[in-house]
Design a protein around this nucleic acid. Structure first.
Lengths: 264, 264
DNA sequence: CGCGCATTTGAGGACTGTCAACTTCCGTGG
DNA sequence: CCACGGAAGTTGACAGTCCTCAAATGCGCG
């Protein structure tokens, strides 16, 4: 684990106020590991031995049932996952898979559980993180049950636009469309049609680039709601900015931006 | 607050290991209040001043958007709600309404937040509770995104049957059908049709009484999955892990309760 | 007894998923 | 450098699911 990684970890809300010795304890048994793209990190139903912290790359959380699969979240650098299962020492409810080459810090679960009852600030940070996770999932349920596919897409685009500064610039979708479709709870075919349906609201699509010509029209359709849609990026969110640089390839189409939204 | 209530509260996982002085602190500023049926306790978007503990009655949590409403959970006695918002000192994402006459213990939110950083066992209990809540919401999302309405109803009936002892006795639906419909993510009309569709799987309905004539047929349709469906989270349940007590009845097929291992 | 409300049933339409064909893009190998 | 093959995305046809509106039925309570 490099000094740079330590620096970024300590800036995570989870470790912000932990005692130095707690932090040393936690990272002592931890290790950083690299995974290629499309690697299954964790299978739902498995016992969870580590808390995962994504340092670099992109990871998808998904669930399956009866040969169907759905994406529950797409994570980008400096976010942690399966904290709930670690705290409960329970089986994972979601699988985790890398979408691209990723670098991941793995902290032993028992160290987390031990620190939780030894360092009260760390325990409180865990509680706050889980509370945030709970609310995020609650938003997801409301989004899913109360809105249609087109409405979910429209709101997704509005949040994405806001997270890029809210200007009129073009948006670059942060993941493949089929991943986005699953995240939004629809099939890739339906996502295509949803984009087509948004044309009359001023939304244009060209590969991964989306242009919003008439934000007001889109908002009128989407009816964004702070009780469902992710808030504007909190000031505590580090790292997102640092990675905003878009890798320009010599050839034509812009690559997918390395960014993701918590909303699902 | 009566002695009986104290007794029941102390048996909640949240207070099980809290120090006596922490508990005294928390309940000092708390008060028990009675509400008639159909009373709005809390409106989504409101600041949350109290942690609510349902001592008696029935409470529904729901969310709204664009004149649509959906039930997110229905709570039975001795469960607490909006803990996440209390911990974060944030606005409520769901509204709460009594479904019947209810008795509710209200503990000031700042007392909770204070105790959380003073009593480490209490803080850990909160973290575990939130982790359980997170996993419960994750199950809900999977249930909603991966299953059809009929499948959700079938699984609901199986869980309900298990929670009543798993025998062949008749089930009594714990809430009105329109509430159940919303909880399951459908309209009342569709719930009616879903029940009708389950007739050929041996499910009979008479008012609030449901009879399951052929549990095996129903399970074959429902394909219950421990990673989606609750495993009877009864109060007094300390360990969250490995609680999958399988009840052997002459007609049961335990292997169906296990997750199918087919992989992608 | 009759009203109000929950539930059911029917008809129609909107939304979403499936299947298949097609296009485009991109990496591989000749 | 270019042809080939695979994957992602799009489009069309069709079916299944779900919602909406409307009307009928049933039930409880004043």
């Amino acid at each position: 684990m490099r000094a740079h990684d330590h620096e970024r970890c300590r800036s995570l809300p989870l470790f912000k106020n932990t005692r130095p010795e707690t932090y040393r304890d936690l990272t002592a048994g931890a290790h950083v590991q690299r995974f290629p793209a499309s690697t299954l990190l964790l299978l739902e139903g498995d016992a969870v031995d580590f808390l995962y912290i994504l340092l670099d790359g992109q990871v998808e959380l998904h669930g399956t049932w009866n040969d169907r699969e759905t994406v529950l979240a797409v994570l980008q650098p400096m976010s942690m996952f399966i904290l709930a299962a670690v705290v409960l020492d329970a089986d994972a409810l979601m699988s985790a898979r890398t979408l691209e080459r990723s670098e991941i810090l793995m902290i032993p679960g028992d160290a987390i559980r031990r620190a939780m009852v030894e360092d009260i600030q760390f325990g409180a940070a865990i509680a706050r993180d889980l509370a945030g996770g709970f609310q995020s999932m609650a938003r997801t349920v409301k989004n899913q049950k109360l809105r249609s596919g087109v409405e979910r897409l429209a709101n997704y685009l509005i949040v994405l636009n806001a997270s890029e500064g809210g200007g009129d610039r073009d948006l670059v979708l942060p993941h493949e469309k089929r991943v986005l479709a699953s995240l939004l709870g629809m099939t890739p075919e339906n996502l295509s049609r949803a984009f087509a349906a948004l044309r009359k609201y001023g939304v244009g699509v060209n590969g991964a680039v989306v242009t919003i010509a008439n934000l007001n029209a889109l908002r009128a359709l989407a009816k964004p709601d702070p009780l469902i849609d992710a808030h504007a990026p909190r000031s505590g969110d580090v790292a997102t900015k640092a990675n905003a640089e878009v890798r320009e390839t010599p050839n034509s189409r812009p690559e997918l931006a390395r960014r993701s939204l918590s909303q699902a």
